[in-house]
Design a protein around this nucleic acid. Sequence first.
DNA 1: ATCCGAATTATTGTCGACAATTTACAAAAG
DNA 2: CTTTTGTAAATTGTCGACAATAATTCGGAT
Lengths: 233, 233
Amino acid sequence: MSTIMPNEPQNPLWRSPVTAADRLLLEIQRTIVEGEIESGSKISEPELARQFNVSRAPLREALARLERCHLIERTPNAGARVVKLSREGLCALYQIREELEGLACRLAAENMDDAEIQQVQELLNQHLDTQRVREGESYYQEAGDLDFHYRIILGSKNPYLINMLCDELYFLVRMYRVQLGMNGPRVSRAFDEHKAIINAIANRDGELADLLMRRHIAASRGNIELKLQQLGK
Amino acid sequence: MSTIMPNEPQNPLWRSPVTAADRLLLEIQRTIVEGEIESGSKISEPELARQFNVSRAPLREALARLERCHLIERTPNAGARVVKLSREGLCALYQIREELEGLACRLAAENMDDAEIQQVQELLNQHLDTQRVREGESYYQEAGDLDFHYRIILGSKNPYLINMLCDELYFLVRMYRVQLGMNGPRVSRAFDEHKAIINAIANRDGELADLLMRRHIAASRGNIELKLQQLGK
DNA sequence: ATCCGAATTATTGTCGACAATTTACAAAAG
DNA sequence: CTTTTGTAAATTGTCGACAATAATTCGGAT
């Protein structure tokens, strides 16, 4: 099955949850991304601490990391609020994504070895099978898409790039996608675009992979932008 | 005089130090960047807490933010170590810088209004004067260069981009520059490159500004890379 | 003498309580 | 009735102590 998250313990946000703060982070991340806490709502430290049966110390550690991945916004002596999704925010976020994932493609074309590339290609074939089985089911597509992007990013072998994209930006990306979804025709097109990107990387054509990835992300942004507009901004 | 740091309280890392954790962050940041704590050395929480006359709570908050800007590396149940400067780290860092500051230039060419652009041009003239006065003095160049880059980044008006560059990456950039310096001929060239970049932005030629900024950063990297090699890797 | 293991020590993670600041509310003045 | 101001409640920031985990040291066996 798809891995969704890379296994390497190289980044402090995705290490196996050994400490209470780690577990809290994962839990609250999921809660916010899935929209179980309303966007823009205030976060009460005492309440959350009671809710999760922990002290405020590990909770504050978790909140610090949540701020790091842009899921909450804190103001001194005033507390934290869940981030609000907006058109401007989406565009600003995807501008960065285009740039950084484009770079990731160029680097991946240089630095991924043949075995890694082949693994991604096999992964895509698996995804295509599961997609055939469950037509239009958005969750698997969601997971599969993220999985693909993660592999390319990791393939860049640039630790800062990996950290910025996987640890800091992608939770917000997931939040947009989970709450605003990805609908019908876009799903199957995304697969073809993935195929084209990894093929360009396999041909060591970083420039092409860069271009294709930028278009892929721009298309994805347009899709979400549409949904945002439909739901009344 | 040069501002060095943007005044807006928009980012949580540079807000006016109202809390003990804020003061700690600024102090320890300076200490690490200036090299007063040796690269790679372990950070003892009890010792630092005693040294700054604070409890470990605000100190840990500060450490969390130090990790965020890549100045320390923490491992669970093992503590934090000051980051080590290396050729690979420098290249990985500047790869990101090239990409993101290139993007910042394109966005700045779109989003900076004429008044802001003129301010930057006046700033450069001021820097040129002070440079004439104090030939080869690297500190002012350092501050002036950073000031210039900050203005362009803020001019992009993209909050995520501003946050990533100003809050997360630039302290490490400063660390490389402070500890490895910027020497003679490069200093005056940097001024000309700055001039060319802001002129391209004034002409609303984002593509050119992007290209020039990438070259500017690549040249700066080459300069530091050389110093690193001289000092025995 | 060297290597391995257990006990000791030190450090990190977590807890509950207190202090400082902000927010909410209510009463009084305009 | 609106605005202002002072008080009270709640929340955040900080502290010192305890628990859990990792590093160190010392002793013993090979």
